[in-house]
Simulated assay, not measured.
Amino acid sequence: MTDNNRLATASNDDIAAAVARLAEASASGVPCAPVRDLIGRNDLAAAYAVQAALTQRRLAAGARITGRKIGLTSPAVQRQLGVDQPDFGVLFDDMAYTDGDALPAGRILQPRVEAEIAFLLRTDLADGPLDTAQVRDAIEYGVAALEICGSRIAWWDISLGDTVADNASAGAYVLGTQAHTLGQVEPVDVTMTMSIDGEEVSTGTGADCLGDPVEAVVWLARTARDLGEPLRAGQVVLSGALGPMRPVSPGSTVTATLSGLGAVTVGFSEGAAA
C-alpha cells in the first residue's frame, strides 16, 4: 500500500502509536481504546496511513490481498458518524470463507454481520475515467455475500478515523455460489433479507447501498487509484451493506437471501480462533 503519512496532519510518532495499539489488539484478542486520541476523528490521510502500515505488516507476515471492502455506504450510518462519504478496507486471503462454512467465533473480535453484493473484477481499474460504464464492464459477476465485521476497538466506540485505521472494521467474508453477470441481475434492484437462527433481523435493497452498489465500486475505484493502489483483475469487492448489520453469537447461523443471487449462509462455532 502507498505511504500517505506525507498527507496527514498527525505526526509520524502518533501514526506509529496507533498502528502499535491496533496491532496489539489484533494479536492479543483484547479490544483496545480508540485511536482518535492519536490521529484525530476525521483525519482521513492519517487514518489511511495507519491502515496502510497495518496492511504492510500483514503482507510481511505472508498474507495475500484478495480485494477490498467498502464501508459506510448507508446514509443512516454516515449521519451517525458525521461523514458524507464511504470508506474502504483491505481483504486478505485468510478472511475468505465459502457458503456453508463454520467460522470459529473467536476468529473475529466483536463480530457483526451484514449482507451485501460481492463483485469479482475481470479487468484492472487503474486507467481511464473509471466511470460507471467502465466499472460495469470490469465486473465479471456478482454473488450474494455476508461480511463479518469486527472491531479491534472496544465496544465499537468508533469515529471515522478509528474505523478507517482499523481496516474499515474488516473481519471475514463469505461468498455465495450463484454467480451472475450484470446482464442477468441488476444490483440496484436486488432485495435482501437476512436472518439469524431463522429470525429475520435485517432487510434492504441495492438502492440502500449508495443508491446503487455499482456506484459504490465507482467511488472505490477512483479512491483506490488516488491512493496509489488501484483495483486489479481477480480481486473481490464487497460493495457495502444492503441493510443494517447485526451482532452475532457463538452457535448462531446467519443466512442472507438476495433476489436473483440466491442465498449465502455461515455458522459460528463455539471454538476459539484457529
Results as ranks from 00 to 15, higher is better:
residue 67 G to L: 11
residue 174 V to R: 00
residue 229 E to H: 03
residue 94 D to Y: 13
residue 24 E to I: 05
residue 176 G to F: 11
residue 201 V to A: 11
residue 264 V to E: 01
residue 51 Q to A: 06
residue 73 T to P: 07
residue 16 A to Y: 09
residue 224 A to C: 09
residue 274 A to G: 15
residue 59 L to R: 11
residue 258 L to E: 05
residue 266 V to A: 15
residue 68 R to K: 06
residue 8 A to P: 03
residue 190 V to D: 04
residue 229 E to K: 03
residue 14 D to I: 11
residue 161 G to V: 11
residue 117 I to C: 13
residue 87 D to V: 03
residue 144 A to E: 12
residue 59 L to G: 15
residue 248 V to Q: 09
residue 107 R to Y: 08
residue 28 S to K: 02
residue 169 S to M: 08
residue 113 V to K: 10
residue 253 T to S: 14
residue 39 I to A: 02
residue 204 G to W: 14
residue 49 A to H: 04
residue 129 P to H: 04
residue 22 L to A: 03
residue 108 I to S: 02
residue 251 G to D: 10
residue 213 P to L: 04
residue 135 V to F: 13
residue 112 R to H: 08
residue 139 I to R: 06
residue 126 A to K: 14
residue 235 Q to S: 04
residue 144 A to Y: 13
residue 203 T to G: 10
residue 205 T to S: 11
residue 195 S to E: 14
residue 149 C to M: 11
residue 160 L to N: 00
residue 264 V to G: 00
residue 110 Q to H: 08
residue 26 S to L: 00
residue 217 V to T: 14
residue 5 N to R: 10
residue 137 D to T: 12
residue 152 R to D: 01
residue 41 R to N: 12
residue 273 A to S: 13
residue 231 L to F: 07
residue 185 V to H: 00
residue 80 Q to V: 05
residue 194 M to W: 00
residue 82 G to C: 01
residue 54 L to M: 15
residue 270 E to T: 13
residue 157 D to R: 04
residue 212 D to G: 10
residue 232 R to A: 14
residue 245 M to Y: 12
residue 44 L to G: 02
residue 21 R to Y: 01
residue 29 G to R: 04
residue 15 I to T: 06
residue 15 I to P: 07
residue 61 A to K: 11
residue 262 G to C: 13
residue 104 P to K: 02
residue 249 S to K: 12
residue 154 A to T: 02
residue 246 R to V: 10
residue 37 D to R: 11
residue 131 D to N: 15
residue 2 T to V: 10
residue 181 T to E: 05
residue 131 D to F: 03
residue 247 P to W: 07
residue 163 T to E: 04
residue 212 D to N: 12
residue 43 D to Q: 04
residue 36 R to H: 13
residue 260 G to W: 00
residue 33 A to S: 12
residue 113 V to M: 14
residue 119 F to A: 14
residue 232 R to N: 09
residue 223 T to E: 15
residue 79 R to T: 09
residue 97 Y to I: 02
residue 44 L to A: 13
residue 46 A to H: 00
residue 215 E to V: 06
residue 49 A to K: 01
residue 172 A to G: 01
residue 215 E to N: 12
residue 253 T to H: 13
residue 28 S to N: 04
residue 9 T to H: 13
residue 84 D to K: 03
residue 83 V to Y: 02
residue 195 S to R: 12
residue 94 D to T: 15
residue 188 V to A: 15
residue 58 R to G: 08
residue 164 V to A: 06
residue 49 A to T: 03
residue 119 F to Q: 02
residue 135 V to I: 15
residue 252 S to I: 08
residue 14 D to V: 09
residue 116 E to D: 07
residue 58 R to I: 07
residue 201 V to K: 14
residue 182 L to K: 01
residue 201 V to S: 11
residue 266 V to Q: 08
residue 47 A to R: 08
residue 24 E to N: 03
residue 67 G to S: 09
residue 223 T to S: 07
residue 197 D to R: 06
residue 48 Y to M: 02
residue 268 F to G: 15
residue 152 R to Y: 03
residue 6 R to N: 01
residue 124 D to R: 00
residue 33 A to Y: 07
residue 204 G to M: 13
residue 196 I to E: 01
residue 81 L to W: 04
residue 262 G to V: 13
residue 84 D to Q: 08
residue 206 G to S: 05
